[in-house]
């Protein structure tokens, strides 16, 4: 029995985010963007709050229930997207998706930081959805917002 792959999945930086999630909470501001997303197959759930000013994400927080991978991913994502423009954050979501699906990804000029530690999930296909849940929530949030503006 080998825990090698497990060690790639549960890297210490991931466990640190799981144990001490950053940006856990809510944004109390009327102008915030709120997204709720579930993974209906497993019961994981995230409430993502984002504040966007002049096209830039100035704050991001989340509440949720889930496994180590989904909580760590949400913690890392909310850290990473703060200060980015909406376009940059969506670009990062695409890079993230490619990374966890095991595809070639090009992150030139983008600081993935801790996020790269989640690449170990490629060896565990059943867990990819855990990692992408918060990112899908962000994408859904911005798609909603766009729709509302056009409306």
């Amino acid at each position: 029995m080998s825990f090698n792959n497990l060690d790639q999945l549960y890297r210490s930086v991931i466990m640190d985010h799981y144990k001490k999630p950053r940006n856990k909470g809510t944004i109390d501001d009327d102008g915030k963007l709120t997204v709720n997303m579930n993974n209906p197959t497993c019961g994981d759930r995230i409430d993502l709050h984002m504040k966007v000013e002049d096209g830039k994400i100035t704050d991001a927080k989340f509440l949720g229930e889930g496994c180590s991978i989904s909580i760590a991913s949400a913690s890392m994502m909310t850290e990473a997207i703060k200060g980015l423009t909406v376009e940059e954050a969506l670009h990062m979501a695409r890079i993230f998706s490619d990374m966890v699906l095991g595809k070639d990804y090009h992150a030139e000029g983008i600081d993935l930081g801790d996020i790269e530690a989640l690449s170990g999930v490629t060896k565990f296909p059943a867990r990819i959805k855990c990692a992408t849940l918060p990112w899908k929530a962000m994408e859904k949030g911005f798609a909603q917002e766009k729709w509302n503006e056009e409306d």
């Binding site: 029995m1 080998s2 825990f3 792959n5 497990l6 999945l9 549960y10 197959t41 497993c42 019961g43 994981d44 889930g66 496994c67 180590s68 991978i69 565990f124 059943a126 867990r127 855990c130």
Partner: peptide
């Protein structure tokens, strides 16, 4: 230890168990 994490670790030992809400959300 979340049930998914437990199930992943058991799987590396060849042990298949179910993790999740088992199609019983009200019971969860």
């Amino acid at each position: 230890v979340h049930a998914h994490d437990l199930s992943t670790i058991l799987d590396t030992m060849g042990i298949a168990v179910r993790a999740g809400h088992h199609c019983c959300q009200p019971l969860m």
